[in-house]
Each structure stands twice: as C-alpha cells, then as structure tokens.
Amino acid sequence: MKTVTGFASATIGNVACGFDVLGFAIKEPGDEVILTLHEESSSESPVSIKTIHGDGGALPRDPKKNTSSFVVLKFLEYLRNHKGIDFQGHIDLELKKNLPLSSGMGSSAASAAAALIAANELLGGPCTKMELVHFAIEGERVACGSAHADNAAPAMLGNFILIRSYNPLDLITIPPPDQLYCTLAHPHIELRTAYARSVLPRSISLKTATEQWGNVGALISGLLTSDYELIGRALVDVIAEPKRATLIPGFYQVKEAALGAGALGCSIAGSGPSIFAFSSSAATAEKAGTAMRNAFLDIDEHLEADIWVSPVCREGARIL
C-alpha cells in the first residue's frame, strides 16, 4: 500500500466585481484528502470513500456523487484515454472536511483540488497542475450544478486567478501584492450556492455592465501595481452583491464595521454567507476581523462568526 495526503485551502470567488471570472486562495483553513493505493482492483469502482470527517453525514458516500472522489475518477479516465495509463488498482479515499459546507469559502473546490493533487502524486505525477484544474472545475458541476472556475482554479494554482475564457479555458495567474491581507468572516449559517445563484438577474443594463467592467479592470490594475487604495476603490460589485446581501443577516452592518476598522474594501465571499475584507497590513486585518465578529453579534447575540486572517496563498494545492 502507498498513502498520500493532499491539502487545498479556502478560496474566495468573484472578489466582488469579478463574478465567475476572478478568485484567490488564502493559506488556511483547508481540506485534506488521504488516498491509499491498493494493488488489487475492485469490481465496482476504482475509487471508494473510506470515511469522511467533519461533514455531519451531509456529503454523499457514492464515489460518483461526491466531489473529491468524482474528480479522481475523471482523472483516472483521462489517464487511460489521453496518457495511455490504464490504472488497475484500487484507491481508498478519506476526506477531512475542515471547511464548512455552503459557506462561500470554496469548500467543494478545496476537496477536489486536494484529492487531485494527492492522486497525481500517488500515480507518479503524470499531469501538471494546469491539467488537473480541468477536473477540479468538473467537480464544481457535481457540487452545485455549475462548472465555474473561480474557486477551483485558485484552489489548485494559488494566487489570484483571472478566467479570461471558459471555452477554451484560459487562466491568467496574478501574484498578490506583498502586504495584501484577507480577513474572512464566516457566520454560522449555511447558504447553498445554487440558491444564491438563483437570485441573480438574468440580464443587466449596459450602464451596469460598464460600471462592473471598470471595477474589474481597476482591481486587476491595483493588484499588479500594488496600489492598495485603488484595490479598495475597485472592490465594488453592482450586480451580485445587491441581490445576495439580503440573504446574509446584517451584511451591510458587517461591511461598514470592516471599513470602519480600516479595511480597504469588503464584499461577499463567493456566493456567501461568508464575508471577506482586504487590508494593507496584518494588524488592520486583525482589527477588521474583530469588528466584523462584533457586528454579527450586534445583529444577533447568538450569531457567532469564525474569523481567519491570511495573506493570499501563492502555492495552491500541495502534498502534506
């Protein structure tokens, strides 16, 4: 037997104005996937789920329906059809689910990326990370019905990732400014991605689209030039945030608290309910986190929120 453990961290999709085209990874928390290779094959499936920790029994144990095992099955299929590697053994999968479900923290993408980096290592590294991204994206289709890359790509590759095109897939890596810190606040509620997508408008005006394009361009410019003030000015979403804010208790109060503590900007993490803020120092990011937690408690004394402060993760998915 051979055992490999993969890790991939939380990611924030959209990054305010970059709906479905921009995302980044933070250093922690993250999911772990432990794969054990057996030489003997199985008559049912080449991958089986041995156990899942931390999901409260919510995730499917069927390898074709669970994101982490599904992407490994697609990876093995790709090796057989495109690399001439016909896998004959059996893989047991153990998932340590450290990210909360339906949180806006890229939970399914982290599981997929961790499983893929482990599977690739287990079989001798036949694929590059860029090749593995394609399978991670397909895992999102299983998780929420939409194969978007703004969580899956940064979970695998790290940094900020701009998705220029989905067909063909064209990903652009943007290294983060050295002093950019993310504060991530996760209130103890769930918000399913499919529902959060359902509230979005099917069409928008040219005026709204133009405003959003301007913010995306400015945000990319700010990241590339380490212009922290510009990053803050550009962190404005005029499409998704106004519709999704009503799904998160006290969103605007929490946002105001982060900005009042000195954060550069603040918006919804992915589809929510988590909220993220950018700061230009670790101290300010910590201060913003305290203010955000207190704002949730001011709204509801029982609404606890977990807070993480982290620089952007440059490494992406890795072997532990």
Rank of each mutant, 00 (worst) to 15 (best):
S9T: 08
N14E: 05
C17G: 09
F19G: 11
L22Y: 01
P29I: 01
D31G: 10
E40N: 12
P46E: 00
V47H: 07
G56T: 08
V71M: 12
L73G: 02
Y78M: 02
L79Y: 08
Q88P: 09
Q88M: 10
K97Y: 04
L101N: 07
S107W: 02
S108K: 14
A109L: 00
L116S: 05
A119T: 01
T128H: 13
H134S: 15
R141G: 09
C144F: 05
D150R: 08
L157K: 04
Y166H: 11
N167E: 11
D178S: 14
D178P: 14
Y181K: 12
C182F: 07
A185W: 04
H188V: 12
E190P: 00
A194E: 11
R197D: 00
R202G: 14
S205D: 07
A209W: 07
E211H: 06
G214E: 00
G214M: 02
T225I: 11
I231T: 04
G232A: 13
R244G: 02
A245I: 09
L259D: 03
A263S: 15
C266S: 09
S267F: 03
P273F: 07
S274T: 08
A285V: 01
A288V: 04
R293T: 03
I299L: 10
S310T: 13
C313K: 10
A317H: 04
